[in-house]
């Protein structure tokens, strides 16, 4: 039975907190942590989906923003942990364990990096854009590997999860609720952006840039704004991911991470608002179930991805819902 996409979205979205609540009732904190991980990865992919799904920008460098968010958290928290100020040359800054401040820094740094990368990368298109974003990802990856002040290749451990006013973030269900709240807020924002004149123009620029130019809109600017918003959201996810694991490492910058975000989007449905959420949940589920069966679980994931690409071009949501997505 095919459901209207909106109904399906609501059902799928509510499945995540339902799993967490059932896990709480069964006293299975590990399952809650898995649901939290899925929600954070979904958030990162929701960010990428604006650039990739709506804007048609296949970025293989979104791990840059994920890693920057993670390191923003790691650096600020490690300085707060060691009571040493962060020396920024012209001035010093105290570390912090406050999540809202860390999120603000993560979003700002990621957005700024996205602006700089976008200004260069968006002057190209197609395979060149993919290669430039990949190159930026690798630059950051190798930089952090050779950055001993913050752990180099070994990464950086944070002993206690950062704090959020009014919540005990060490309690898995409370941390899940916080992450889920952020995901819900970002999905609401992305829905608004999609339906705004900016979102409509961005989608149109993906299909025909010249046509958009003739109505007075610059495809470059539209894509740059989308890329910056996209990077900022992925950076926020990076900060949350680092907080979930209480650990950051250069692997957050790796191109495999960028590839995983793309896989989430393709699995769920490119350009569909809830596609990345479904894709990330499916990925975490398969990872959890199959990695226990075989060390080569990624082969099975590859088979699933192949089936989706061949037989469900609109991803899982496209296969289950009525209506067409932007790429169907």
């Amino acid at each position: 039975m095919m459901l209207p996409e909106r109904t399906l979205n609501i059902i799928l979205f509510l499945a995540l907190p339902l799993v967490a609540v059932i896990a709480l009732a069964l006293d299975e904190p590990f399952i809650i942590t898995l649901a939290t991980r899925a929600a954070i990865l979904a958030l990162a992919a929701v960010g990428l989906n604006l650039a990739l799904g709506l804007g048609g920008l296949v970025s293989l460098g979104h791990a840059v923003f994920f890693g920057l968010g993670g390191y923003a958290m790691g650096i600020l928290a490690s300085h707060a942990q060691s009571f040493t100020p962060l020396d920024l040359g012209l001035f010093t800054l105290d570390g912090t364990k406050s999540m809202p401040i860390i999120w603000l820094v993560a979003v700002t740094v990621s957005a700024f990096a996205a602006l700089l990368i976008g200004l260069l990368a968006l002057r190209t298109a197609g395979v060149y854009f993919i290669m430039i974003t990949l190159a930026f990802g690798q630059m950051f990856y190798y930089f952090t590997i050779s950055w001993p002040a913050y752990g180099g290749e070994d990464g950086l451990s944070i002993y206690v999860r950062n704090s959020f006013p009014g919540l005990n973030t060490l309690d898995p269900i409370q941390f899940f609720a916080l992450v889920f709240g952020v995901l819900a807020a970002v999905l609401w924002l992305m829905g608004r952006i999609e339906r705004s004149s900016f979102g409509l123009a961005l989608g149109s620029a993906r299909q025909n840039a010249v046509r958009v130019e003739t109505v007075g809109l610059s495809p470059f600017r539209l894509r740059l704004v989308a890329f910056v918003i996209s990077g900022a959201v992925t950076g926020l996810a990076g900060a949350l991911f680092a907080d979930l694991n209480r650990f950051v490492s250069p692997t957050m910058f790796s191109w495999q991470m960028s590839g995983e975000f793309i896989v989430f989007i393709v699995l769920g449905g490119i350009g569909r608002l809830y596609g990345p959420v479904v894709g990330a949940c499916l990925f975490v589920l398969l990872e959890h179930m199959l990695s226990g069966v075989s060390d080569f679980w990624l082969i099975y994931l590859g088979a699933v991805l192949l089936l989706v690409v061949l037989f469900a071009r609109g991803g899982v949501i496209g296969a289950l819902a009525n209506g067409r997505g932007v790429h169907d």
Binding site: G203, S204, Q207, N208, R211, E213, T214, G216, L217, S218
Partner: peptide, 24 residues
């Protein structure tokens, strides 16, 4: 001047073959 700046200056084009944004 690029096309979008010309359009912003006040040139509105109805192109040959209509060319609307089909999926919208």
């Amino acid at each position: 001047v690029p096309p979008h700046v010309a359009a912003r200056a006040g040139l509105g084009l109805v192109p040959e073959g209509r060319r609307v944004f089909g999926p919208l």
